[in-house]
Amino acid sequence: MKYFLSGLLAIGLSLAATASFAADARNVSVVNETGYAIKFLGFNAPDDGMDEWDNELDKVLQNQASTYVEFDDDDEGCVWNIRVDWQNYDESVLWKNVNLCKFNVLRLRYDPGTKTTSFVAE
């Protein structure tokens, strides 16, 4: 019986380890807490330049909505630039050199007093 329980424990630990390695450390949930709709959410590597962006959104990300961004195996590194474009506003917000491997949730916020957009990483 002792060997049976030890075997079950070993199988359980190996399954848990496999599941934790399956998710890319850069994958992130983005939560829009700005009060405004977002039409474009892009990530690019710092070496890609500022002209190469792919929109990660299938549709407009409304205020208080969230989306999950998954990275491909071809993508390299933890540090990325993040760009946000608003649905009814012509300017973009850009954060450079954000280490995505340090958090799982990115909460986008806007402060109307200072007119600045920021993010909180969790």
Score class of each variant (00 low, 15 high):
9 L>Y: 10
98 V>K: 04
103 F>I: 03
2 K>W: 15
63 N>I: 06
92 S>I: 06
69 V>Y: 03
4 F>W: 13
86 W>P: 03
92 S>V: 06
53 W>L: 02
42 G>Q: 01
78 C>R: 08
33 E>W: 08
48 D>S: 15
16 A>G: 08
46 P>S: 01
115 K>S: 14
120 V>T: 12
42 G>T: 03
55 N>M: 02
79 V>R: 05
25 A>L: 14
120 V>G: 10
35 G>D: 03
13 L>Y: 08
95 W>V: 02
52 E>F: 05
116 T>M: 13
61 L>W: 06
1 M>I: 12
96 K>W: 10
25 A>T: 14
96 K>N: 15
8 L>E: 08
119 F>W: 03
47 D>P: 07
47 D>V: 15
18 T>H: 15
18 T>Y: 15
49 G>P: 02
71 F>P: 02
39 K>C: 07
119 F>N: 01
49 G>M: 02
7 G>K: 04
73 D>Y: 11
98 V>T: 05
115 K>M: 15
110 Y>A: 04
37 A>Q: 05
57 L>Q: 03
41 L>Q: 00
9 L>Q: 10
37 A>F: 05
121 A>R: 09
94 L>E: 07
46 P>D: 00
92 S>L: 07
82 I>W: 05
63 N>L: 06
90 D>H: 11
5 L>R: 10
84 V>C: 02
89 Y>G: 07
65 A>H: 11
110 Y>F: 12
101 C>Q: 04
89 Y>N: 13
121 A>Q: 09
22 A>I: 10
63 N>W: 06
94 L>K: 05
43 F>R: 03
65 A>D: 12
80 W>F: 05
9 L>I: 13
32 N>E: 01
20 S>A: 13
94 L>G: 04
53 W>D: 03
58 D>N: 13
2 K>A: 11
41 L>G: 00
24 D>V: 03
84 V>K: 03
9 L>P: 05
122 E>H: 10
18 T>L: 15
83 R>M: 15
13 L>I: 14
19 A>H: 09
51 D>H: 06
104 N>G: 09
75 D>G: 04
44 N>R: 07
104 N>S: 12
23 A>T: 14
121 A>H: 09
81 N>H: 08
74 D>Q: 13
77 G>N: 02
